[in-house]
Design a protein around this nucleic acid. Structure first.
Lengths: 234, 234
DNA sequence: ACAAAAGTGTTGTCAATACACCCATGG
DNA sequence: CCATGGGTGTATTGACAACACTTTTGT
């Protein structure tokens, strides 16, 4: 036990154990009234045929968030999507190639905007609730990210990131029901969202439905930004 | 842009960039009605005289949480304290010795139980609200951990970890006021805590106060554990 | 006309807030 | 007896939950 310490004394870090650092992205989408996650088939012999999150080793010249955005861009072509760091996972034997600490992010994308990259034909969207087994500790990572999303979606309206620009209230409710895995009362749900005043009525209606068409709305991003600024600090 | 990837293909990680990984502990205590944090003076020339969090390089054979507990134990002699991972910080130039990604934890300790280790006479408790400058990006880390603690303390009774085993309701309220930086109504505060039923009346009173002595309580840990289990899963 | 989903209000309950006076102790 | 903080109850308000019928469209 020494008083020498990386925060207080000069230490040559190359003299110390150095692990690899990766990022793993839990990319959530919403389709067919189900919360989905984008996964890739692992070719590692230890995890043959198992599904894994999209991740990569961090580069020396990029910060963590940049690395996570890079993974997202390379795999989905998307930029400027909602993304949040969740936490680090660093079990000693979590990766067969050696000690790899990974930093998990989740992001929320509009599934229709995602063009899966051609070299990524092993990529597939999976219904979150149907996932049983995954490679590495990725099931634990997914579970932790889902819990985080559930919390987040209750106190901030981030769910819009998963929907098309125009959506009906039914779609919005289906989204919340899928994320939280609960049934919600239709009238109370509508009341709540109208009261929050984040919805802009587009005066348009659904097309080609064989029942009464629903009105379409879009998310009031500016109003959200304003409130968000004010409510910071509590 | 390559399809090769640490999650899908065999990669020799020693061929890749390897950064150092550290843990940093935000150790919270409560004393004199103020939320305190345990800091150490940095001797790095870049941060001479500035205060830093307690941290260390992770060892190859320990997982992240073990490393964080080790730092805590070495510095405070404490084991079995409340600790929670917050997130990773990995700005490119955050450490002058090179690329160091750090994983931040906060912990809640009873300040009276802490015997500062003899080789640690540069260690001091600081009032959180008086801290202006810190070494590295530690002020940002501290701020993030404080926000996390504030959220946590609102929806789970973790605050008890900062108090002596026996405490009065006034002390408990002072704690909440210090953490959240708000004033609370005394009657409503008491009502709320009695309703939650986490307090065990010890039938004891404060000694040596020059006013009406307050009753002392302890935290009902078992009841908390039971509820906690049930309430998981929303 | 029928099927299918959209749209709409009221009521009860519970939790959070605001607020003022008497009590027990030490000096 | 005075200063200091301990201890207590009620009324109001706002948020959330429960609940059923009418409307619009396509077939």
């Amino acid at each position: 036990m020494s008083a020498k310490n990386i925060n207080t004394h000069l230490i040559e870090i190359q003299d110390y154990f150095k692990a690899a650092i990766s990022v793993d992205c839990v990319i959530f989408g919403f389709d067919e009234n189900e919360l989905k996650v984008l996964l890739i088939e692992s070719d590692l012999k230890e995890f043959k045929g198992k599904w894994s999150l999209l991740g990569d080793i961090m580069h020396p010249d990029e910060d963590i968030e940049t690395a996570a955005y890079r993974v997202l861009r390379e795999r989905t072509g998307l930029e400027n999507v909602y993304m949040e760091q969740v936490q680090a996972f660093g079990g000693i034997n979590r990766h067969p190639a050696g000690r790899v600490i990974t930093i998990a992010y989740y992001s929320l994308v509009n599934i229709e905007h995602v063009e899966l990259k051609t070299h990524s034909n092993e990529l597939h969207w999976h219904a979150v609730k149907d996932i049983r087994q995954m490679a590495f500790d990725h099931r634990e990572i997914l579970a932790t990210c889902l819990e985080r999303l559930q919390r987040k979606v209750i106190d901030q309206p981030v769910g819009f990131n998963l929907l098309p620009r125009k959506f009906s209230l039914r779609e919005l409710q289906n989204l919340y029901e899928a994320i939280l895995d609960v049934k919600l009362d239709r009238r109370n749900f509508r009341k709540k969202f109208f009261a929050m005043d984040y919805l802009i009525d587009l005066n348009e209606e659904e097309q080609e439905v064989r029942h009464r068409p629903a009105k379409l709305y879009k998310f009031n991003q500016e109003k959200y930004n304003q409130r968000h600024k004010k409510s910071l600090g509590f």
